[in-house]
């Protein structure tokens, strides 16, 4: 097997900090490279990438392509896509993986049309077909009710985006060695068509749903907006984020920032507690890849029980406060 073939991970950085999903992709990349014999590489466009390489080596990258340019300090679609596409044209990697972040989901589709590559969004599983030499990209289709495995037999590279928390981080060691390859792209020819004026981080004391390890969600069964208090109370006891179904958001009981589901956020926490959520496909699509799902509902026929690991049949207004009480007692 050729050792020159490469699997790339786009090393997304913001304000000089590598995104967590990059390490998850490198960890999955280690497994894929073991199967394929490819070399695991990272691609790092930034203002000055040298200082960021070590941690990428530690997660298995043998090579880091750094593309340094002041114009690449912050994400700008035109500059980034030009830089990454040019590097792809030149080095011809077999596979390029991106985090399905707001940046990755802008960059990957732009690069895909630039380099004539196939792109599969939001893969939940990646594997390598050694015989055919294809990346097997599995993703949920139509709200997670069907899984589809996608291949790109005729085009290279094969590109995929993956959400955070789908793959586990596996560090090789704290002192791996690797090779930094500096690559120059002339961006002066790229017209400046958009300019970032402002970047604002909003202080939000609620835990980010996408990153949450635990989520407690309320649905129509909660009954009315005031009753969300018991959901919040349990969440705070568990150190969990609060989610909600579309019905409760549409009814104005809770802000849409909390909405889990197809038209809200897709989450994959360690434990997802669904309280009074019947389990419309719209909702299931956003949470069914959670590690463990606990459903609390008074209707034993509710579809939510089809995806639950643990189903509690009964009145959430009695069960949820009891849950909180026992967790509190266990902590004390």
């Amino acid at each position: 097997m050729s050792t020159t073939k490469e699997l790339w991970v786009f090393a997304e950085q913001r304000e000089g900090k590598i995104a967590g999903v990059v390490y998850e992709l490198l960890s999955e990349g280690q497994i894929l490279c073991e199967k394929s014999g490819y070399t695991l590489c990272a691609v790092l466009p930034s203002a000055d990438g040298a200082s960021l390489c070590q941690e990428l080596y530690n997660f298995g990258a043998k090579k880091v392509y750094t593309i340094d340019d002041p114009k690449l300090k912050d994400y700008q679609n035109d500059y980034y896509s030009r830089a990454v596409a040019q590097l792809i044209h030149e080095k011809k990697p077999e596979i390029v993986l991106y985090g399905a972040t707001t940046i990755g989901r802008s960059l990957a589709p732009t690069v895909a049309v630039m380099v004539n590559a196939g792109l599969t969004a939001d893969c939940t599983q990646l594997d390598f077909d050694v015989e055919a030499g294809n990346l097997l990209q599995t993703r949920p289709a139509f709200g997670g009710n069907i899984m589809a495995t996608i291949i790109c037999p005729d085009n290279r590279p094969q590109m995929a985006t993956v959400r955070s928390n789908v793959f586990k981080k596996t560090k090789v060691s704290d002192s791996e060695s690797g090779e930094q390859v500096s690559y120059n792209v002339d961006l002066s020819a790229v017209p400046e068509r958009m300019r970032r004026l402002e970047s604002v981080h909003e202080a939000d004391n609620t835990i980010d749903l996408n990153a949450a390890q635990y989520i407690v969600s309320g649905g129509r069964g909660v009954g009315k907006p005031e009753n969300f208090k018991i959901i919040y109370d349990l969440a705070s006891e568990l150190g969990a984020a609060v989610g909600a179904s579309r019905a409760t958001v549409d009814a104005g009981w809770i802000s849409h920032h909390h909405q889990v589901g197809q038209t809200g956020k897709t989450v994959c926490p360690v434990v997802y507690v669904a309280c009074g959520i019947s389990g419309a496909i719209q909702h299931l699509a956003g949470m069914q890849s959670s590690d463990v799902i606990v459903a609390i509902n008074k209707d034993p026929d509710a579809p939510i029980f089809d995806v639950a690991d643990f189903g509690l049949i009964g009145d959430l207004h009695a069960i949820v406060p009891e849950f909180q009480k026992q967790i509190a007692a266990a902590k004390a």
């Binding site: 792109l119 949920p140 899984m147 495995t149 996608i150 291949i151 790109c152």
Partner: peptide, 10 residues
């Protein structure tokens, strides 16, 4: 470029 190679129930 992309082809669906297989579809299966979750």
């Amino acid at each position: 470029p992309t082809k669906v190679s297989k579809v299966f129930a979750p």
